[in-house]
Amino acid sequence: MDIFSALHKNVIPLLFLKNAHLRNSRTIHLSAVCSKSQSGRYKITPKGDRPLTYEMANPPHWIAHRKSWNSFNTTNLLGGLRSAETAVEDLFIRKFMVGTWHNLIANEVIIKRQHNIIRIAVLVRQALNPRKMYFLLGYTEELLSSWLQCPVTLELQTIEDKNCTIYKYI
């Protein structure tokens, strides 16, 4: 029932009839503009030349249908522990990974937790020479495991170019 049909049926109290500004303020959050969900969605370009990865091409409502989660753990199951801590730690790991492997990571950082082991999976560009890459790998594992107090394993897959991950253009 929208507000005007409600008015006709005398459902809305007199207060709203007298104070039009109040009526408007009550309805603004229900308007089409506000209820539009935008997160995780990309605008199309006039030329249709914006490259999207598979992850970007599927908006959040396709999680568990077309794409999978980026964090895997048992904290949000019934009786799970440390859900808030795990979420914050995951955020930290993501930030750290993106900063440490700067301009190298080609997808979202995938974090899998099994018992006390944290496994981090990422796609990395082949822009560094192997020696530097091995250094970064050890550096990341060592620092993260000392901060998070549990063994951390990095499972990398290197790709030639970021173009390898392009799913479609919009």
């Binding site: 598979y54 895997f72 995938i110 897959q157 790709i159 991950t165």
Partner: peptide, 8 residues
């Protein structure tokens, strides 16, 4: 190759 879904 470069498929993140397979890695997840």
């Amino acid at each position: 190759v470069g498929n993140a879904e397979l890695m997840k």
